[in-house]
Design a protein around this nucleic acid. Structure first.
Lengths: 199, 199
DNA sequence: GTCTATATGGCGATAGAC
DNA sequence: GTCTATCGCCATATAGAC
């Protein structure tokens, strides 16, 4: 609890921005969440835009770095794929609003994304390589590997970003039932992807 | 070109809201787009909230109705599935910002979604039934059909909502290359789903 | 019905005391 | 560094002339 004021502001801002986005968040709301006065946010971060970019940059980078970390171990391609799916769903479950946050903001202001890609050392091509190198099957050799990765990401991310709709429509708005469904998904997605790759 | 003033406002609002969302859109911007004065928007729709709900309701309903229409023909389950994938991608390509619009708004204000589901005659359970009835394979009989449908939707929707990121990262920000990729996806997704269902 | 002008409120940002 | 008070702007909304 001996966090500095700046850290308290940052963490409060992170929570609010991730929930409501740049346009939906209010500086007053962030100040309340941080338990202090609005003026202090400007003292430490000068502007809302600044504070937001700081949060977005970090959130975006950490999310990708964690994804990459799940891939660096020296195991077979198939094991890597299985580990990736488990870890990715776990990561989203621990940060369920982050995917929607990222997707909203890259659509709202793609420029931020462009500067961010050059500044940070993220190499998404590496993720694709790490994930699929060594997975040589009849299907894969014919197919653009980007289709596999994007299908996989879609299957994993969509149930989280469309949750309010899907939970209401297919689960009678039962939160717990939907949580169970999300846990089942690890095995289901593994099955689908492996079945396709090994066929 | 003999549309009424109300129609002009509605169509302008639709374009702006779908691009920028409820919070990002400005009444002045909508008035400019409609080629008239800001006060008229309030004369016809009373408030921004009202105008937005009108647009969202329609957009949401029409999107679902069109999806359902692709399923009503009397063909085999497998053909239905294939037709669904083709038509769904075509529908999104013709309305590329609609999925992100819907996803953003259901996360911003899930209440609107709830009232909407009761008012409109949308029966999403029917979509699931229509889509998968008659598809009985070893896999499917064991598996919650919701996993299939949500995987399918994720594979189809994700490339559109995450486009700015994916296009930059995997396609050197080449618009045309990404468009070609989206067209290829019809066959790829068909393959993946059928392979899984028939296995 | 359509416009100009204006009211009203909220939000980001700053000034200045302590 | 932290607070209170306030500025200035911009967005929604309304009043009122035509």
């Amino acid at each position: 609890m001996d966090r500095t004021t700046e850290e308290k502001i940052y963490e409060a801002a992170r929570r609010i921005f991730i929930l409501k986005g740049m346009e939906g968040a209010r500086m007053q709301e962030i100040a309340d969440e941080a338990g202090m006065n609005k003026a202090l946010l400007h003292y430490y971060f000068r502007s809302k835009e600044n504070l937001f970019k700081s949060v977005f940059k970090d959130t975006f980078s950490k999310f990708f770095v964690k994804v990459k970390d799940t891939l660096s171990s020296e195991v077979s391609a198939k094991e890597k794929l299985i580990a990736f799916i488990d870890n990715y769903i776990n990561l989203i479950q621990a940060n369920p609003y982050v995917p929607q946050f990222i997707i909203s903001e890259i659509n709202r202001d793609p420029k931020v994304l462009k500067t961010l890609m050059f500044e940070s050392g993220i190499e998404p091509q590496k993720i694709l390589d790490l994930l699929l190198n060594g997975v040589h099957s009849g299907n894969l050799s014919k197919l653009d590997p980007r289709h596999i990765v994007i299908s996989l990401l879609g299957m994993l991310v969509f149930p989280f970003v469309a949750r309010p709709l899907l939970q209401m429509v297919y689960f009678n708005d039962d939160r717990e039932a939907y949580d169970r469904f999300l846990n089942e998904r690890k095995e289901v997605v593994k099955n689908m992807i492996l079945k396709f790759i090994e066929a």
